[in-house]
Simulated scan of single mutants.
Amino acid sequence: MLVIEFKARANAAQSAAIDEAIRTAQFVRNKCLRLWMDQKGKGKYDLNKYCKVLANEFEWARKLNSQARQASAEQAWSSIANFYRNCTNNIRPVGYPRFKKHSRSVEYKTSGWKLLDLKRIRFTDRFGIGELRLIGTYDLGYYTPEQIKRVRIIRRADGYYVQFVLSVEVTADRQPTGKAVGLDMGLEHFYTDSTGHHEPVQQFYRQSQAKRKRLQRRLSRKAKGSRNRAKARQRLARHELKVSRQRKEHAKRLAYCVIQSNDLVAYEDLRIRNMVKNHCLAKLIQDAGWYQFRLWLEYFGKKYGAVTIAVDPAYTSQECPRCGAIVKKSLSTRTHVCACGCELQRDHAAAVNILRKGLRTAGHAGTWLLDNQNAWGDLTSTVQHSGAEVQVES
């Protein structure tokens, strides 16, 4: 699947109509979730059938396109299915489905919209959204209308966006490099690879805190319900959106560089939801953006044909990469020193262990990479600002 996003140019009346459609989609989703809670044994198709009951019961719910109502019911069932899966796999917390209070999107399937040309779309439900102009550089003419499976309208702090979900298999050719790398995520460095190269951490949230506090003070001084308060809240929301986009772009560029430089990438399978329970490190962990980096690694790995392996991080920072002995260390101990004579920076040693775990998981694929390497696992390294093909020498 491929998602293409455009910014939509909408006037005040169209913005009000989009907001009403979003609220209606949220209502349908919450009502379907309530049906599942109240009546035992309801399944996915029961929720889809319930959409017609809601349309007959509420006149304003009928304004939303029938397939858009079904898409909202499918979103409710997606949260229910995730809950069942977590219970089956004994994942904690299981994530019991919750009602949505502030939805920001409405999704249409193959009806309720019509693409007029490459830069204009018209929504045909009864909310009166009408024609929206699309702003962006993507070329929809490259794809057939049958490949467009979903259309979403998303509200963000800086306006409205239209997403097209395309049924397209995204692949690209890449010359094999014959190299593999293990990545250890950290707070002192964003990641350390199995050659000892450290990628510096970019604390976008920490760097923007001064401006954020200033905007929050201005917001708190405005009278509740006033127009000036709405403007101040909008400025704060745009600032937060900018910080999140900076973090996303940073993770995207690093992941692209790593995938272009290696045929196999091993990384830690971190449970970030459990890690942020440490209130001393929660802000730093959230600001690092490890999970977003992992998502882009997996996406680019699939696109360019590289192998990405998530390994269990247990004892990767305690085990000696030379002899395999367990050397207990606290978080404040940043150097690995073993009785066998191995002395490495802590994150470097962990990255080597992660790479070895990844190679064992992959079977025989890539084991030849260790034949002529030393015990440190000096295979390859990545440099963000030097181009995708440039490597750090061991």
Rank of each mutant, 00 (worst) to 15 (best):
K7C: 07
Y299S: 10
Q75W: 03
N372I: 01
F58W: 11
D193M: 02
Y143K: 05
M275Y: 06
T24M: 05
K222M: 11
W113I: 00
S103H: 11
N65E: 14
N90T: 03
G130D: 04
T192K: 03
A232V: 08
T88M: 06
L236C: 07
N89R: 15
I18H: 06
A61M: 14
A375D: 12
T110L: 01
R221F: 03
G41I: 07
L215E: 12
D193Q: 05
D263I: 07
A351N: 09
K101H: 09
M37V: 05
K149N: 07
W296E: 12
A230W: 01
N278W: 09
Y142I: 13
H336N: 08
A71Q: 15
I309K: 06
S261C: 08
I272Y: 02
G43K: 10
S244L: 10
E59S: 14
A10Q: 04
R217G: 02
V311M: 09
Y138T: 00
L297Y: 10
L64N: 05
R62M: 02
S194V: 09
A350F: 08
H239C: 08
F190N: 04
Q14N: 06
R212E: 14
C32E: 03
A351V: 08
W113D: 00
L118M: 03
E188Y: 02
Q39K: 15
H336F: 13
R229G: 05
L254R: 13
D371G: 02
S261P: 00
K114F: 01
G186R: 04
A13E: 15
E169L: 10
K242M: 09
Q246K: 13
L33Q: 14
Q292R: 14
Y205S: 11
S244N: 12
V3K: 12
S15I: 10
K114N: 11
F164Q: 05
Q260R: 15
M275A: 11
N372Q: 13
Q246L: 12
Q67P: 00
D269Q: 10
G186I: 05
R92M: 09
R120D: 02
D347L: 09
Q391C: 05
K100F: 03
K328L: 08
R23A: 15
C338A: 10
Y143T: 04
I309L: 15
T316E: 10
R104H: 11
E20Y: 00
K213F: 02
Q39H: 09
R133G: 06
K114S: 08
G136A: 10
W296Q: 13
Q207T: 06
A375W: 15
K252G: 00
R273T: 13
K302S: 12
